[in-house]
């Protein structure tokens, strides 16, 4: 388990980035307290704009700031960072080339006790359909810090989804991150396991236990879902001849879809997909929600056995 919730990391890192680069600004919509970023405005009172509960305006104001040379970060829950502002992201951000960095917290099942209204199963699918968007699903503290640094450097619009709570750490401070390259965590020859966000530590456990069964899985952390690092995916399945994708989002339109789209074009091999099975979620805590949606370590192990049998 992580030392602290990711929202604390987000706040600390934003203060650091804003101190380093005066172009970085934040545009909020009355969830700074929930997302941990309330403290930022005490450091930079003129560079945080709270739009109130008005997400469409938040995204468009951020687009306007971007057009004047600023690097705006918006924060709200994933639901209100994507589906609620889909048109604003499409036209005023991506089409108009106003490079806003949209941060969505409470990604997927980590919405937990806010329940089905807030667990936005569709966020990745919604944003993937918009040309020009980069989508990152963050797993832990070390990765979040590097994603935010790269978000300042990358001159384009991004959607960054994350938990705001305690998470399982995968990486440490020695982590070398590249925005457009997936992370090869463990080499293997029998199956390629591709995982993003909070599913990565779960997949890591599954891969370790599969080794005890004699299954040698290759584990790849896919932080950037769009554009997908097709080169790494294709190089891996060229060796393993099958893949399992694991994501904390609807399997329709997310990581599984992105991987399948790549494979059917270049190297069609069997794929099994772990993720929210195209359904709305109930209210509940994460362990129970993972079970309900067949996204546990055991579900991943079963998917691996199944996909190997399909080879």
């Amino acid at each position: 388990m992580s030392k602290r919730p990711l929202k604390e990391v987000l706040c600390e890192k934003m203060i650091e980035l804003m101190a380093k680069d005066e172009r970085v600004v934040m545009v909020e919509s009355d969830l700074s307290r929930s997302n941990g970023t309330l403290e930022v405005r005490s450091h930079f009172p003129d560079r945080v704009f709270d739009c109130g509960i008005a997400e469409a305006n938040m995204v468009s104001v951020a687009a306007g700031l971007a057009s004047q040379g600023f690097i705006p970060f918006t924060t709200t829950f994933t639901a209100f960072s994507t589906r609620r502002v889909c048109d604003q992201i499409t036209l005023s951000v991506s089409y108009a080339k106003n490079p806003v960095k949209l941060i969505g917290t409470d990604a997927g099942l980590t919405g937990e006790l806010n329940g089905g209204t807030h667990i936005s199963v569709e966020d990745i699918a919604v944003i993937r359909g918009i040309p020009g968007m980069v989508i990152v699903d963050v797993v832990d503290e070390a990765q979040l810090k590097q994603v935010l640094e790269d978000a300042v450097l990358y001159d384009g619009p991004m959607y960054i989804r994350m938990s705001r709570k305690m998470v399982e750490d995968v990486y440490d401070d020695s982590y070398e991150f590249d925005l457009f390259t997936a992370d090869l965590l463990k080499e293997g020859k029998d199956v390629t396991v591709l995982a993003s966000g909070i599913e990565l530590p779960i997949a890591k456990c599954a891969v370790e236990e599969l080794a005890e069964e004699g299954i040698d899985a290759e584990l790849i952390g896919v932080h950037t879902i769009k554009p997908l690092d097709a080169e790494t995916v294709l190089a891996s399945v060229a060796k393993t001849r099958c893949a399992v994708t694991c994501e904390n989002a609807n399997v329709v339109g997310g990581l599984g879809s992105a991987v399948a789209e790549t494979l059917v074009r270049h190297d069609p091999v069997p794929v099994e997909m772990i993720g929210i099975p195209d359904r709305f979620c109930e209210v509940g805590l994460l362990p129970w929600l993972l079970e309900q949606n067949h996204m546990t370590k055991d579900d991943i192990k079963e998917a691996v056995r199944k996909v190997i049998a399909r080879k």
Binding site: V61, L65, L91
Partner: peptide
């Protein structure tokens, strides 16, 4: 860039805030 009604005035707020900043 405009075309989806209601957004231009909202983007203009960010432009004006940016000019002030």
């Amino acid at each position: 860039t405009t075309g989806s009604l209601g957004q231009g005035i909202s983007v203009a707020m960010g432009m004006a805030a940016g000019q002030k900043l």
